[in-house]
Simulated scan of single mutants.
Amino acid sequence: MTATPILFDCDPGHDDAIALVMAHRSPAIEILGITTTCGNSELEKTTANCLRILEFIGANDVPVAQGCDRPLARPLVLGTADGPSGLEGSPYLPPAKKQVVDQHAVDFLAEKLAAQPEPIQVVATGPLTNIGLLVLKHPQVLSKIKNLIWMGGVFYRKSEIITPTEFNAFCDPEALKIVLDSGIPITMLGLDVTMQVLVEAPQFAELEKIDSPLGKVVVDWLKFYEKLHRNSMGVGGALHDPLVIAAVIDPTLIRTKPVHIGVNLAAGYSFGATVADFWNERGEKPNASIAYEVDSDRFFDLLYSLLRD
């Protein structure tokens, strides 16, 4: 098997943490570098969490570059699912000795992309601030992005006019618009599919059978992460970001449709909402493919196998 090289932009975060674990443990993926952004927590915390995770899983050889500490055009609004540190539930995970590279994430991404002989995949699981700034600052490297696969947006029923808003889109909608308008091939995995990969009692039972330090950490992360989902939505924790990595490993896990997507930048109840023209009523060229179906059983089989091996 030839590994797929990726650059991974993230804001760890419990589900980002599990996505990092999956990416590192899968022989189908080669992580060329990781960049961090604000979102689930402040940049200093998301970066510290990323370094802690990588050191714990033995990925010290993967370079990490710290990126933007606020959205492109507005104040930072933090996510709430991951607690004050952005990675509550594993206090025994020590601070990392690993350091970030001495380069801003946007310049790091540009350098890595320029060095690739062929276009590669970029994976993003947080707000698109770093990627939006990359589009503005280094347009000459955009042709080296084979596909940007992003956890973001929400569409649900095709008949809705005003859609709910997903956090990554809400946090920096201007960056999202820049990326959507850039011409980069984009695949969006929104809440339509990520809310179908829920950790409920059967999934916890399988995960608790994995008798290893890594298995224990993942279960502890998920026990904390589940609390918000259970209290606010009555369901288990949704593995939003791990699904993105799973789709890189096995693209057949999801089904997608190319559509034209707009993002609402106006203040109001639907600020940051992603709106898809499913039937091409406006006659605009598709600017992304959105996932609308996922094989959740196969996703969890893949997750368990990566944590066990």
Rank of each mutant, 00 (worst) to 15 (best):
Thr47Cys: 03
Pro27Cys: 08
Ala48Cys: 01
Glu55Ser: 14
Val21Ser: 11
Gly58Gln: 02
Ala28Cys: 05
Ala19Thr: 01
His14Val: 07
Ala48Asn: 08
Pro5Leu: 10
Ala19Trp: 05
Thr36Leu: 00
Ile31Glu: 01
Ala3Thr: 05
Ala59Phe: 06
Cys10Leu: 15
Pro95Glu: 14
Asp61Lys: 05
Ala65Trp: 06
Pro84Phe: 13
Leu87Gly: 10
Pro84Arg: 12
Met22Asp: 04
Ala81His: 14
Ala73Cys: 03
Gly79Thr: 00
Val21Cys: 14
Asp9Ile: 13
Ser26His: 05
Val77Met: 05
Leu87Ala: 12
Pro84His: 13
His24Ala: 12
Leu43Met: 04
Leu20Lys: 13
Ala96Trp: 01
Leu32Lys: 11
Ser90Ile: 15
Pro91Arg: 15
Pro12His: 09
Thr80Glu: 15
Pro12Arg: 03
Pro75Lys: 08
Gly83His: 10
Gly89Ser: 12
Ala3Trp: 08
Thr36His: 03
Ala23Glu: 03
Cys68Arg: 07
Pro84Ile: 14
Gly79Lys: 02
Glu42Asp: 13
Met22His: 09
Val64Arg: 11
Pro5Glu: 13
Ala48Arg: 12
Asp16Asn: 15
Pro63Ala: 14
Ser26Cys: 09
Ile34Thr: 10
Asp11Trp: 04
Ala19Cys: 07
Asp16Ala: 15
Asp61Asn: 12
His14Phe: 13
Thr37Glu: 10
Thr35Ile: 00
Ala73Asp: 09
Pro95Ile: 05
Val64Met: 08
Gly79Cys: 02
Pro94His: 10
Ile34Gly: 10
Leu87Asn: 08
Glu30His: 11
Leu72Phe: 01
Asp9Ser: 14
Ser41Asn: 15
Phe8Lys: 05
Ile18Leu: 15
Thr47Phe: 04
His14Ser: 15
Glu42Asn: 06
Asp82Met: 01
Gly79Ala: 06
Ser85Ala: 14
Asp9Leu: 05
Cys50His: 03
Cys50Thr: 15
Leu51Gln: 09
Val62Cys: 09
Thr80Met: 12
Leu76Val: 06
Pro5His: 08
Arg74Asp: 06
